[in-house]
Nucleic acid binder design. Structure first.
Lengths: 233, 233
DNA sequence: CGCGCTCAAAAGTCAGACTTTTACATCACA
DNA sequence: TGTGATGTAAAAGTCTGACTTTTGAGCGCG
């Protein structure tokens, strides 16, 4: 699943990144590249490259005569896919899933509305196929197969919206959905009403009914929020 | 405005990043670190660090025996603040502003609704202050002063939502708003109705009226979309 | 035609010397 | 005692050169 680290520098990142995002190095604490290089048994050049990347993610700040200081959480590039993966793998995964789900609940309805206007016939067909796949795997403990179709469905919606920023949230949504299946409850089959809603969204998009697609997707989002005990009015 | 490049490596980034995002190096084209280092008159170590950062932004991919290949636009980390800045500075700034504005229109109403539930008294006060500032500067060609208050207003809303992902869009919204003032039309004073809407949002948040805050913010968003000729039904 | 072998190109890694910035302490002077 | 100039050393930053590793591509052989 996770990209196997190729290159020494990537392996260092896979050590430091999760450690920092997990709060193992508290914000404000200072590291020294030389000491780190020695501890992780790599050359300083490799360590410097790793630090540069962490710096570009705003996880740390490197200053002369001071060292590499860990930045406060509020400054991290929390939309960086790698940062998201590290944080989801860490201890505050539940909090992460909540804030990402709230983001989904804001974005996906609008994306669905746009998809209804902009989806190509191919995308409509793909969407219908995903919905059918979801129906077919919604009973009998085929959770993994269901997940695949669910992810594909939401990805198509985001892509079909025609908006680049929405399209790029595909991986994020995939992480959230698979997180729900793997680490959340979800022992039993998915709720039939949720499955039906997906089918109806596919319908609405196919018919170009933007308002209905948006409203139906909003209902799906409300369901996702309720699953995580995030109150709705 | 733009962070003055400190460190040789940052200067290299400020050369390559804009060039790549502007399409000066087309996706698929290949660069060689040695050749680049020579051309930009820096050592290979510096160039390698820069390439690493570009790689972490998914702008390029570095493979042995091949070189550094520019990735297709669809794979870039378009939520990276630096990438956003580079793209906004480039040729397809209009397209960028559109897609970012659509994102805003999805996120900010939900954020405002959450803010109405979660805002602290301090945040409510700050919000009111921003709104008053907007009113005070809405006439007489004080566009810069107005912009400052406008940015502050939206930033407070996003922060007050209590959602980390929303809060991190503050810089993005700031870029969009300042882009509108500086590079768009906006010769004359802002529309009085828009100003009034902001005041009313502040009111709604103060009173904890989530539904009203969300609806009013949605009206603001519609206005922003219309300014860019993005159709509303 | 295809299979495997070899070669070289390019990134990757390392080590060491040197430069630059700058926090901190020290000291002189008011 | 407080304040400002000065010096020092610590840490990041830079450069260079040698070496290793991977791997695409060409070549020859079956």
């Amino acid at each position: 699943m996770t990209t196997q680290a190729q290159g020494l520098h990537a392996r260092v990142l896979e050590t430091l990144g999760p450690a920092i995002t997990a709060g193992e190095y508290k914000p404000g604490s200072v590291l020294r590249t030389d000491e780190l290089a020695e501890r992780l048994e790599v050359s300083r050049s490799v360590m410097r490259e790793a630090v540069r990347v962490l710096e570009s993610m705003h996880l740390v700040e490197s200053r002369r005569r001071v060292g590499v200081t860990v930045r406060p959480v509020a400054e991290w590039n929390v939309y960086d896919p790698q940062v998201i993966r590290w944080r989801l793998a860490g201890a505050d995964r539940p909090r992460q899933l909540r804030s990402l789900t709230v983001l989904r609940s804001a974005v996906e309805p609008v994306a669905a509305g746009l998809a209804a206007r902009n989806a190509t016939p191919e995308q409509c067909a793909e969407l219908t196929e995903c919905a059918l796949g979801m129906v077919a795997t919604s009973r009998g403990q085929q959770l993994e197969a269901y997940l695949v179709h669910d992810i594909a469905f939401h990805r198509v919606i985001l892509n079909a919206s025609g908006n680049e920023m929405f399209a790029h949230l595909g991986d994020l949504v995939a992480e959230v959905l698979s997180g729900r299946t793997h680490h959340q409850v979800m022992f039993k089959d998915p709720d039939p009403p949720a499955v039906r809603l997906h089918v109806q969204v596919a319908e609405a998009v196919r018919e170009g009914d933007a308002a209905r697609a948006e409203e139906l997707t909003r209902e799906i989002a409300v369901g996702a929020l309720q699953e995580l005990d995030i109150l709705a009015p």
